[in-house]
Design a protein around this nucleic acid. Structure first.
Lengths: 185, 185
DNA sequence: ATCCTATATAGGACTTGTCATATAATAGTA
DNA sequence: TACTATTATATGACAAGTCCTATATAGGAT
């Protein structure tokens, strides 16, 4: 479960509460690992039972108490080990590809509309990516070093690169379709 | 749930049993939608309750009886509607990107090894893709038309294109790392 | 005075998907 | 003779993730 490792990654910078982590996820890794609030809380308590994190109760006046999670030595070892271990090749489910696979059952104009919408979605995604660097500056208080920052930015590069490659492919495909390359029934 | 729609897509060609469908999935769409045997069976019985498929019991001597699933009119409408409806932008979880995000916590050589392994995985994926056209011929009995075939091949194109783009990116990255572009701690 | 937002944690119910196993008959192989 | 594979369906147990709701307090806006 990569959510555990991602949490360990952040806790290795410094202790955080579940509430903190939710906000950090939403402003950093949500593009490749969205995390649900309730799942973060449940995962944290599981990680505590596994001995990867310790809980420090922090009492607050006028606010509910916080549970500050500290990474343990076992947690640090688990993180290091996971980071250095190559992942098994992933299988990504893609509903879009299911639509493409059966698109022949639609009329040409419908297919074209579908791909044009897909291209629009990618452009919207690229636009969203373009403003992330600014968001990152908003949480640059978490930046521990230029080294960390390099890899944070690298995930953005990968994301944009992939989107751009997909967009180029779809745009070329739309041209092919306009040229009447889809065989008739 | 796209598994339902994928099943409808195949049943719209002709009726199949759960056993058939498992084999068809494994030789066609597993690269973008792997399907577990038990899940296919459970999904089929759910789809039956939803009125999307009818069951024809086919008795067999010397083999267990087959349940042949026929798509209903309601099922065909559901399929058509789903195919023509643009999907909400997907969020793909990528454990690889979690590794990249926190890779700064590793030593340079470890990072390099990780990316080289990732590149190898992509090359292996490309090699697997390269032999799929042959596999597709093995199930070309299911091919209803050149039009269908066009889109089946298109999913391959997309897959290979994406892999190739990722590979090019990682190879360039490995060069950058070798040139010492990773900031020190 | 009421509503909304922010801070903070947590549980119930549910969906999707995985893994292992059971059943049952036949045919081929070691 | 014993095992393995193929055909065929099905369930139990679990893991991961989503959605909704509950609880509690404080401050600001309408």
């Amino acid at each position: 479960m990569s959510l555990e490792q991602a949490i360990l990654g952040f806790l290795n910078y410094r202790p955080y509460s579940g509430y903190d982590l939710k906000k950090i996820f939403d402003t950093s890794v949500r593009h490749f690992w969205p995390a649900d609030q309730s799942q973060i809380y449940r995962t944290l308590s599981r990680m505590n039972k596994e001995g990867w994190v310790d809980i420090e109760m922090v009492h607050q006046e006028s606010r509910p108490d916080r549970k500050l999670y500290h990474i343990t030595t076992a947690g640090q070892e688990a993180l290091r080990q996971w980071l250095a271990t190559p992942l098994p090749p992933q299988e990504n489910r893609s509903a879009d590809m299911i639509q493409v696979f059966f698109a022949g059952q639609l009329a040409d104009e419908e297919i074209l509309a579908l791909f044009e919408r897909a291209a629009d979605n990618i452009r919207a995604g690229l636009a969203r990516y373009a403003q992330i660097p600014r968001e990152i500056e908003a949480y640059s208080e978490y930046t521990t070093s230029p080294r960390e920052f390099f890899f944070w930015m690298l995930t953005l590069d990968v994301g944009m690169h992939t989107l751009q490659a997909n967009l180029a492919f779809i745009e070329a495909l739309i041209q092919r379709i306009r040229n009447g390359e889809i065989p008739a029934a």
